[in-house]
Design a protein around this nucleic acid. Structure first.
Length: 463
RNA sequence: GACCCUAUCGUCCAGUGGCCUAGGACACUCCCCUUUCACGGGAGUAACACGGGUUCGAAUCCCGUUAGGGUCGCCA
């Protein structure tokens, strides 16, 4: 029998007091090869709580499953958290007083606690594995988010004794999780609601070990927009997807912070320090959230618009380089970026808008060509426009616009009948930045040669 | 199946017994701005799951039903 739990009728009275009044939370991911958006949100809430309370945010890697534990899989998690701006006070890379922070390196600790439970008679062997003998009680979870919930563990059929150690000596999640939370002096466990039903088991372990359990806060899950469970493949499920998709960390952080929590005053675009200031675990709601990529994109545009030109430049550059666009000097890129920045929702969309600024081999969209050059007069007009611009003493947006209007008047055409053909001729497409500023940036030489070239290749072959 | 959680516009959040003929945001529709597409400004469509209670009064409290989610592993 489990003597810790019996303790001559004193029960919880002889529990060891926690020596630290300090707030300490932890994010304890398993290195599965990707960081789930729900995990990112859990980490975020832990981090926000720690920062709000002036406590410590600990990162612990739960890599007891040796099979799929690789350095790459760990790196993905670390990179994702760093990208989101969630710095940890203790954990991989930064150390701390309660390490090591990889479960695979904490073997002796688990062995010690295992012996404790064994000596207390709380364990029994089953086919080589070790099980924890439940006290078969009603265990009540006092949860900051969910309230008090009673779980009746009395029926062994429905609540079998949990296994804590496999025949090969490796450890099971419930056990190491509890041991580490004790050893690392965790004061608040903030995790996904999928763990709520596991919590009574964890509480039994704490009781058997004679340690007062931490406070719990189970936060709602993030599901797909249709309510199904988000898996790796689903859009928006992986933090890496946001990094590669050209999202800004602040935007994703802001969006995720509002899934299950809000400042209660209808504000949505919240700076990080403001979120830290206002974050309140007790005000987290209990309803699962459905993920909406559209809204996340909207946040991204909000944050994108707040970047300075130089920030936008720096942020865009990796995506431009990845797209293989040779931009020449940074100075050549800036004016183009200034034209294009209001058109994009993500950094990944930047290259798509500026390709034709940096090559003469830009493609022509067939639909745009059909629309712009449907009639032979389009070429006459373009030719007249080309002549007028060729002799324009000044090459700036205002001059170009004035000249175009004059040409249109001379030709008895409306100005906007000249705009689309011009745009398609110089860019190959029907939409883009404001035309005249765009031509100003493009420059006289390239604009004129493109106009002539487009007339040559798109003019009717019947002439 | 058992146990647990949840239930306000399509989605995310407000709303904790009377301020609610339910508010904000995303999306959508329309209008304005615009010599493209966007941006921006304005307007609009759209919800208290259902049924019982409690109460002078319920989106708000209670019960049931239904629906969704979670857990029930020698996964984490």
């Amino acid at each position: 029998m489990c003597v810790f739990a019996r303790a001559e009728g004193l029960g919880f009275a002889r529990l060891t007091p926690r020596m630290n009044p300090e707030i300490r939370v932890r994010f304890a991911p398993s290195p599965t090869g990707y960081l789930h958006v729900g995990g990112g949100r859990t980490a975020l809430f832990n981090w926000l709580f720690a920062r709000h309370e002036g406590g410590k945010f600990v990162l612990r890697i739960e890599d007891t499953d040796k099979a799929r534990n690789t350095p790459e899989a760990v790196a993905v998690i670390l990179d994702g958290l760093r990208w989101l701006g969630l710095d940890w006070d203790e954990g991989p890379g930064v150390g701390g007083d309660y390490g090591p922070y990889f479960q695979s390196e904490r073997e002796e600790i688990y062995e010690r606690y295992f012996q404790k439970l064994l000596e207390a008679g709380c364990l029994y062997e089953d086919n080589g594995a070790w099980r924890f003998r439940s006290q078969r009680e009603v265990v009540t979870v006092h949860d900051i988010v969910c309230g008090s919930i009673a779980f009746d563990l009395s029926n062994p059929q429905t609540h079998p004794d949990m296994t804590i150690r496999r025949p090969d000596g490796s450890w099971i999640f419930h056990f190491v999780n509890v041991v580490d939370d004790i050893e690392m002096r965790i004061s608040h466990v903030i995790r996904g609601e999928d763990h709520l039903s596991n919590t009574p088991k964890h509480l039994e372990l704490f009781k058997a070990l004679g340690v007062q359990p931490p406070a719990y806060a189970h936060i709602p899950l993030i599901l797909n927009k249709d309510g199904s469970k988000m898996s790796k493949r689903d859009a928006g499920a992986s933090i890496t997807g946001y990094i590669e998709g050209g999202f800004l960390p602040g935007a994703v952080r802001n969006y995720l912070s509002l899934l299950g929590w809000s400042p209660k005053d209808n504000r949505e675009v919240l700076e990080l320090d403001e979120t830290v200031r206002l974050f309140d675990l007790a005000k987290v709601n209990r309803k699962n959230a459905h993920f909406d990529l559209e809204k996340c994109l909207w946040f991204n545009t909000q944050y994108l618009q707040k970047t300075s030109p130089s920030q936008f430049h720096a942020l865009s550059l990796p995506f431009i380089e990845k797209a293989g666009i040779a931009v020449g000097t940074p100075a050549a890129l800036d004016p183009v970026l200034a034209l294009v920045r209001e058109k994009v929702k993500t950094l990944a969309e930047v290259p798509g808008w500026l390709g034709y600024f940096f090559t003469e081999e830009y493609p022509f969209d067939p639909q745009a060509v059909a629309k712009a050059f449907s009639t032979p007069v389009a070429f006459e007009r373009l030719a007249a426009l080309t002549r007028a611009w060729d002799t324009s003493p000044i090459w700036d947006a205002a001059a170009l616009e004035a000249a175009l209007k004059q040409v249109a008047a001379d030709l008895n055409a409306k100005p906007n009948e000249l705009l689309l053909p011009t745009r398609v001729a110089v860019s190959g497409r029907a939409s883009g930045p404001n035309l005249f500023p765009m031509l100003e940036v493009l420059g006289r030489e390239r604009t004129l040669s493109r106009l002539r070239h487009a007339c040559t290749i798109h003019a009717p072959v019947t002439q």
